[in-house]
Amino acid sequence: MDIRDRIAKRVAKELRDGDVVNLGIGLPTMVANFIPDDVEIHLQSENGFIGMGPIAGEAEVDKDLVNAGGIYVTAKRGAAFFDSTMSFSIIRGGHVDVTVLGALQVDKEGNLANWMIPGKLVPGMGGAMDLVVGAKRVIVAMEHTAKGRAKILEKCTLPLTAKGEVDLIITEMGVMEVTQGGLVLREIASDITIEDIKNATEAELIIDENLKIMEVAE
């Protein structure tokens, strides 16, 4: 299984029936492909609706219906449209159960950097700062390293998106939870060792006494 699929599939297991969920652009969007049939989640799109369905096929394209990445999507039966004020009342007001985002860097204190690289890449934060502050649970879903460089650090060096808001980090190598005591490795992929993941992580990893194998079989 492709490592991005593996990550998305593991993230999907964190979602519960009835959850209001916002998925970031890119890898997080793929999480929607792995939601079990018996779990109904309500996908929120920050440009102004809840009940987002899959990307629109050619015959389904509606020029008035895009997701927050500007891609034509569909709306599920029972969807609701609203304006940006309502959208961010939902986001900032704690009405989103889970937000899943990518990261440039994340650290052991749950700090997240994902909106700019000074002098290089300045796309802007869009809705990310509000989402990370407002959602009840923040999951970072990303590849463990960037071209071999660690992304899970002792302390983020890039400008932050939010301070101390990340709850869980899911990569192809494992599942890590941000706790008061530090970053705890809860699950590890079946094809690597603890040494492998430690070597790919700058932050100190506390190994859970009940460390499990990351379930992403198939």
Binding site: L65, F81, D83, S84
Partner: peptide, 12 residues
Amino acid sequence: WYNKSTRNFNPV
């Protein structure tokens, strides 16, 4: 009246 996701920042 705004159709679907075209509403966004317009009303405010």
